[in-house]
């Protein structure tokens, strides 16, 4: 039996909205540690790793490890039927072929349940090596989203270059070119607005903007985003989910022909 109750049910809707553009079908892995998902997009260029710890839920029970295969799009459609302030409870039997989502309004006056059929999905688990990254940038997630969106009006790829002074996002395209530089700065009163650059050595890598714009769908989950890069390695774009876990996206760099 799997049962998980989340007072802030809207969190799961935001998570689904941040994954469904990249991956169609995926397995949610439920265990005593929590609720997790690892999935690659169909072209094997990007990977999502999402983890919600069991202690972040108001109630969490998972008697045995369970893999729930779902269409992320259909699950997102169901979660759209949940009120913004609703409490969410997920339930699934160990050998069952469905998962139930129960939505309770804050005043308990409306209770609804939606059942989603599960699917058998062959998933490939990838081993992600622990890496000491050359550079890690923490910045406001909305700023990162804006930069990716703005640069997409000019080009398809972005060169992200980190130096100790700042991080520069550059693109070129048929109509011209664009650069945005974000400098490190601290803000004691508003930590969510600060930009922190932790750099061992300068690093510059090129990525497809299309994927970064998909990752930015996670912006409502966190005020800050952490971008970790090393030479010739996939970038990690991580959004921490307060008191619960994270959603991390890995994206393979582009290389010069």
């Amino acid at each position: 039996m799997f049962e998980a109750r989340l007072t802030q049910g809207v969190l799961l809707r935001k998570l689904l909205d941040s994954m469904k553009d990249l991956v169609q079908d995926a397995n949610f892995d439920c265990s005593s540690t929590g609720f997790a998902l690892q999935a690659m997009d169909s072209s094997h260029v990007s990977l999502i790793h999402m983890q919600l710890r069991s202690d972040g839920f108001d109630h969490f029970r998972c008697d045995r490890n369970l893999s729930m295969g779902v269409s992320l799009n259909n699950m997102a459609k169901i979660l759209k039927c949940m009120g913004n302030d609703d409490v969410l409870t997920m339930k699934a039997e160990d050998q069952g072929d469905s998962v139930t989502f129960m939505f309770e309004s804050a005043n308990q006056e409306r209770i609804s349940d939606f059942e989603l059929k599960l699917m058998d999905i062959d998933s490939e688990q990838l081993g992600i090596p622990d890496t000491d990254y050359s550079a890690t940038v923490k910045m406001p997630s909305a700023e990162f989203a804006r930069i990716c969106k703005d640069l997409s009006t000019i080009g398809d790829t972005v060169l992200i270059a980190v130096t100790k002074d700042g991080v520069r996002f550059s693109t070129t395209g048929d109509i011209g070119s664009a650069n945005v530089t974000v400098r490190s700065h601290s803000n004691v009163d508003k930590p969510e607005e600060q930009v922190v650059i932790d750099m061992q050595e300068p690093v510059a890598l090129t990525f497809a903007l299309r994927y970064l714009n998909s990752f930015a769908k996670a912006t409502p989950l966190s005020n800050q985003v952490m971008i970790s890069m090393s030479k010739e390695l996939p970038v990690v774009v991580q959004y921490r989910i307060e008191d619960m876990g994270h959603i991390s996206y890995y994206l393979a760099p582009k290389i010069e022909d």
């Binding site: 690659m40 072209s43 094997h44 260029v45 990007s46 990977l47 490939e124 688990q125 990838l126 081993g127 992600i128 090596p129 790829t157 090129t206 497809a208 390695l233 996939p234 890995y250 393979a252 760099p253 582009k254 290389i255 010069e256 022909d257």
Partner: peptide
Amino acid sequence: TPLQNNLDEFFALI
């Protein structure tokens, strides 16, 4: 145009 790397080149299948 730069070539797109693939994640399989970096992460091993478990």
